[in-house]
Design a protein around this nucleic acid. Structure first.
Lengths: 213, 213, 213, 213
DNA sequence: AATGAATGAGGATTCATTCAT
DNA sequence: GATGAATGAATCCTCATTCAT
């Protein structure tokens, strides 16, 4: 029922950017460890796209295809589906952490970055609503840790005591609420709704953008 | 497409193996047409439970099993997965409508009923976060209509102009936000978080319970 | 649509029962990509046999089993039942075309090859009698094209104007007639009847055999 | 995959022609044995239509629906699918026999009736090409007997010794051939092709019509 | 280190057949 | 005698995962 096949970068060997003279052989150039890192990054990026387009239940094969690699490579880098999902989330969280750790970080700024990821990454949203279903619970475990890292990152920028969201718990609840509102068919719509949600909560949010992007 | 064999017995291809369980055993009770309505209700209830436990992608066979009926019965009542999901949502929405239509209805009271369904029904929540994956998009179409019915029900009880949620749009956004917050492993946890979310929005909510339940 | 479980193991719903056959047993040999072409050929051959024995509606699983491959392999090579049927027909037609294209081809010789396929391949016959049922109509479309290819092949060897079957249309009608006669439980019986049919039509037929076989 | 449901006379109780005052009850009038005969006839007629439209593998439920009766009634009259098919053929053959037994019967006249059934009844054609598949072989047994009855009917009107089809065997082969040619999407097309086939065989055929119809 | 074919379990779906009413 | 709901086996089809090359 999933019409993912044939979509996007279908040619396994076309994605490489190697400048080597075209090898005369059938097998793709074995670029060694360099390729490995590149492949891993491509897989995470592909997973983010595929998740956004088709949900967290998209076939792993679709992710590998979008990344321009064989399925074996996916399994080399990630033992199972949960590991893929986790890797995507990991990236999201790391950016939020970096935004929070920046010299001149402000709550509004960090929330802007966070909101960017909320609107961008279906996985990031979906995770917060993951029910108890099987593999997801595997993800959930890790997600809890990630959630704590976000909380920790925000904690450094909590508003003053008088603010409605003066505690980390409340702030995290607010994040969940905004993520709940950040639905819609397009990135634009999701951003619009997310910002409206923050407004309802009386929270000021900086520009919605990736960190250093 | 295949109707070559007489009722699934003794296929030429299946050299044994698939013998009938206990040929001497009588068929399970067939309670006749009377059971039809009862079965439909049991299926919807089972779907609600299974969806809550395993997510919207839980196998339909699990729903049939939980309802205590054969898979065929499920398909008799619902042509496909979307119809099952839709039936669950329909019930949720109908209760909210009834709560809103009651003689002495108040916004707080209606939101209490709504919140009960939010915490109870994973489908109700999941729907708002449905990604574009195939069958869900079929559901989404219907979900939009349902969403409008909720909006219509709430519209009759909008707070005064001065309130932070004075428009129906804002109120619906708030519902989405609360639904985003109403996550967690247990009903209790979900209710607790939902109420905390309403509080952050400064909205008063009546007792969280089903309508007339 | 369901990707919740880790590779079909240990489902929450399947309380036992469906354990793996013999966990200690090694997977069946995976001969690697080299096997691909071999498998495809095996599948077509198996399909021809199974179709002959059980009709065009035989289960695809039976074809896969006969070919000695998993069902997945069948689906890798052929997206659906129509593709399988079409592949079988394609082979039949190609042989007829080759026979017609041979240096020293004669009408009698080509009809001999054609007749061999008529008696051999239930699909070839069944196609001409395909009713409107769903997947068959998909096949029919392709079958029409194939039919035209046969007609084209025969056209190069039409008998002289005086002959009873002097037009391609009449010749194709005759083919349909012979195919209608070529029934029976065994290949021998079918060949016998086919030849009798050609005789009734006053057409001389060469040796009944595959091309270059 | 079969889209038969909902097609044609879907209302179970609408087909009756009884003039009784409309019963006030929910259950349909129980017209007793009279209805039984009517139902049987309706089932055979429905089977003929459904077979023609969807092939011999059409669901029995479609036949019952088309006949305007419940599935139980079908099973009361026919123990299994083979019995249904057989009943349809039986009618075809009986008409041919009656045509052959008529006072002024001629070979051309009988072949006209036979040809009408060939073009009309997919079952009649399909049967001759039934492969060895399971339930069909059950049908085949009976079909052989029927075939002999047709042969017997024709034998009384064999052409003179000089004719190309002077033996009953040859005549039956010719029937099979014509049935092989009588394909096509419409009755008209099938009749056209059948007549062309007879012409190729040099056989004169009377008007194509049912006996006394 | 990468590819992509193969396996095979599991869920979806369809009917043949039974049977309470 | 009739209705039509229920059962459940069988088939279809889709991936997760392994592994020869």
């Amino acid at each position: 029922m999933n019409r993912l096949r044939g979509a996007g970068r279908a040619l396994p060997y076309s994605a490489g950017m190697t400048q080597h003279p075209v090898p005369d052989q059938r097998r793709p150039a074995n670029d060694g460890p360099k390729a490995a890192a590149r492949n891993r990054a491509a897989l995470v990026a592909a997973a983010r796209e595929i998740y956004a387009e088709h949900g967290l239940d998209a076939p792993l094969s679709a992710i590998a295809r979008r990344a321009g690699v064989g399925q074996g490579v996916l399994y080399r880098h990630f033992p199972d589906r949960a590991a893929v999902t986790t890797a995507v989330l990991e990236e999201n969280v790391r950016e939020v952490e970096q935004a929070a750790a920046a010299e001149d970080a402000t709550l509004a700024g960090v929330l802007g970055v966070l909101t960017w990821h909320l609107k961008e990454s279906a996985a990031f949203i979906g995770l917060l609503h993951a029910d108890g279903s099987d593999h997801r619970s595997a993800v959930r475990a890790h997600a809890l840790a990630l959630s704590r890292r976000v909380e920790h990152a925000l904690r450094a920028h909590l508003p003053d005591a008088g603010h409605r969201l003066a505690t980390a718990d409340d702030l995290m609840l607010a994040v969940a609420m905004v993520s709940g509102a950040a639905t819609g068919p397009s990135h634009e719509e999701r951003e619009r709704r997310a910002l409206a949600a923050w407004r309802l909560l009386g929270v000021e949010v900086g520009p919605v953008r990736p960190f250093h992007g």
